[in-house]
């Protein structure tokens, strides 16, 4: 085996490593559920915010998704609106929402027990209501 063919073998091995790594990353990118909210390709194709009015009459994402991921959504919304000034959320259907806890409480606040029933059952103690007014404190 001459020097050149040895070089070719090593090159092929490197390419194989690269292709494997690439497919691994692709799988990680589209395989996870949490990628739904931020990286949905439908959201990217939606019209630019500012065109349509902000619609807060229905839920931003399916109930199943919100039940499992509302904390990630709220964390991202807080970061975007407080630190980056990007206040408009566009869901996969192209509907616009204000990135605010008040968007959620606009509907869910009508049930004073909405947050508490689940949190009580799951035995989680989020610190939201140390500062934010909970549905139990807001006059109906």
């Amino acid at each position: 085996m001459n020097k050149f063919s040895k070089f070719l073998v090593a090159l092929a091995a490197g390419l194989a490593v690269f292709v494997a790594a690439w497919f691994f990353m692709q799988a990680g990118h589209y395989g996870s559920v949490s990628a739904h909210a931020e990286n949905s390709p439908v959201a990217a194709a939606a019209p630019a915010p500012g065109g349509a009015p902000i619609d807060s009459s229905k839920c931003i994402l399916p109930t199943e998704y919100m039940r499992a991921h509302h904390m990630q959504v709220l964390n991202k919304w807080r970061h975007d609106s407080v630190r980056e000034g990007n206040r408009t959320y566009v869901n996969p259907q192209g509907e616009h929402f204000d990135k605010s806890l008040n968007t959620c409480l606009g509907c869910h606040g009508s049930n004073p027990m909405f947050c508490f029933m689940c949190h009580e059952f799951a035995n989680v103690k989020p610190t939201c209501w140390d500062c934010h007014l909970s549905p139990m404190e807001v006059p109906q």
Binding site: L11, A13, G14, V17, F18
Partner: peptide, 21 residues
């Protein structure tokens, strides 16, 4: 085939870089 580990890694890295490009 006298290929030591260091030489192989060097060439494999070059291959990955070429693939990336």
């Amino acid at each position: 085939m006298s290929q030591n580990r260091r030489e192989f890694l060097k060439k494999a890295g070059l291959g990955a870089l070429a693939g990336l490009g």
